[in-house]
Amino acid sequence: MQQISNHIFCDDSIASLELETRLMTNQYYDYPYLIIKDFFSKSTCYDISEYAYNTSEGEKAKVKTRVLGSIVNPSVDESIRKTVIHKLSDLHVRMYDENFKSFQPLIERFFSVALTTSTALQALEYTKGSFYIKHADDSNELVDADGKTVGFIQVAPMRKLTTVLFTTSHKMHSSEDYSFSGGELIFNYLFDVNGKQIKLYPRAGDMVVFPSNPIYSHEVLHVENGYRLTLVQWHNAIID
């Protein structure tokens, strides 16, 4: 295991891979990802969740693949990803954009980058039985005949940073109408000092920011009950 921050270690096999984009945080930080508390107030989170649940018409999320060196059109594959994408109201998007601008200097300092362009904001809904298997946001994983990871091939090089804002809480923190059990966010190759895999149990209003490269491969565990809604973006950046 390789230590990548004061409290977090990375699996040797992944830490040693040659990656096309290898953005990392300062190794003297406590954690190699950033958690922003209260990006939105509880009432705003509730309003957004209410809108997605009752008003917005969603569509099944797709995944990108690469075949013979070419990226093919994204398609629905519910063995990989079972979730629904919603569109937010114009008001909620404007509120998000305004808040993001206020936190952008913090994000840029933490990761030593200058953010440039960003994808459109996605509202991702996970209900009972929804999940997303292990994946890296900028790459597809390559495995051998035994299922062992042997490398990654980049399919979305413009993705340098990932931001995930939760508008609902894990039930260990809240039993409100819009909360969920299961559905934890796991970083597959990151571990604490006791060798325990990093697993996040978010509160509504928490934003998690992390590099999009394979070191930060992650998954969403099956939702057992409730309603899990996240606002997700991917950001290009000039890396210092």
Rank of each mutant, 00 (worst) to 15 (best):
residue 26 N to F: 12
residue 219 E to Y: 00
residue 54 N to K: 11
residue 50 E to M: 11
residue 149 T to Y: 04
residue 143 V to L: 15
residue 69 G to Q: 11
residue 62 K to T: 05
residue 185 L to S: 00
residue 186 I to M: 03
residue 95 M to N: 13
residue 145 A to R: 12
residue 121 L to E: 06
residue 141 E to M: 12
residue 227 Y to M: 08
residue 132 Y to I: 12
residue 98 E to L: 07
residue 14 I to C: 06
residue 48 I to L: 04
residue 64 K to D: 07
residue 140 N to D: 04
residue 94 R to T: 07
residue 159 R to G: 06
residue 189 Y to L: 01
residue 208 V to C: 07
residue 29 Y to Q: 08
residue 93 V to K: 07
residue 124 L to K: 08
residue 123 A to P: 02
residue 219 E to N: 05
residue 211 P to M: 07
residue 19 L to N: 02
residue 231 L to F: 04
residue 65 T to G: 13
residue 52 A to I: 15
residue 9 F to Y: 15
residue 77 D to Q: 04
residue 134 K to G: 14
residue 81 R to E: 08
residue 182 G to V: 03
residue 177 D to F: 10
residue 82 K to T: 10
residue 105 P to D: 12
residue 197 Q to R: 15
residue 41 S to V: 04
residue 74 P to A: 07
residue 69 G to H: 10
residue 62 K to L: 00
residue 126 Y to T: 03
residue 217 S to R: 02
residue 172 M to G: 11
residue 17 L to A: 06
residue 165 L to G: 04
residue 199 K to H: 02
residue 90 D to L: 12
residue 186 I to T: 05
residue 127 T to Y: 02
residue 61 A to D: 04
residue 12 D to V: 08
residue 124 L to H: 05
residue 114 A to W: 01
residue 176 E to G: 10
residue 56 S to I: 11
residue 161 L to Y: 01
residue 225 N to D: 14
residue 219 E to R: 08
residue 199 K to W: 00
residue 227 Y to C: 06
residue 117 T to A: 13
residue 63 V to P: 04
residue 137 D to L: 03
residue 19 L to C: 03
residue 25 T to K: 06
residue 32 P to L: 13
residue 137 D to C: 06
residue 236 N to G: 13
residue 229 L to K: 10
residue 229 L to T: 08
residue 89 S to C: 01
residue 203 R to C: 11
residue 196 K to Q: 14
residue 200 L to V: 08
residue 186 I to P: 00
residue 156 A to Y: 12
residue 106 L to R: 15
residue 119 T to D: 14
residue 210 F to Q: 03
residue 116 T to V: 13
residue 134 K to Q: 15
residue 1 M to V: 12
residue 35 I to G: 04
residue 239 I to L: 13
residue 79 S to K: 09
residue 174 S to C: 08
residue 159 R to I: 06
residue 180 F to D: 10
residue 218 H to S: 09
residue 66 R to C: 14
residue 52 A to F: 08
residue 214 P to H: 02
residue 180 F to G: 08
residue 31 Y to A: 05
residue 109 R to W: 11
residue 209 V to D: 09
residue 63 V to E: 04
residue 150 V to E: 15
residue 95 M to K: 02
residue 185 L to E: 00
residue 35 I to Y: 07
residue 75 S to D: 10
residue 198 I to G: 05
residue 170 H to L: 07
residue 152 F to C: 03
residue 4 I to T: 03
residue 19 L to F: 02
residue 101 K to N: 15
residue 85 I to L: 10
residue 88 L to R: 10
residue 103 F to V: 15
residue 181 S to E: 06
residue 56 S to A: 15
residue 126 Y to D: 05
residue 137 D to M: 05
residue 176 E to H: 09
residue 195 G to L: 02
residue 198 I to M: 11
residue 129 G to D: 11
residue 208 V to F: 10
residue 20 E to R: 07
residue 157 P to A: 02
residue 227 Y to F: 15
residue 102 S to C: 08
residue 3 Q to W: 06
residue 88 L to V: 14
residue 122 Q to V: 00
residue 212 S to P: 00
residue 204 A to V: 03
residue 202 P to G: 03
residue 175 S to G: 04
residue 231 L to H: 06
residue 225 N to E: 13
residue 238 I to G: 14
residue 158 M to Q: 14
residue 150 V to C: 13
residue 72 V to M: 14
residue 83 T to F: 03
residue 131 F to P: 07
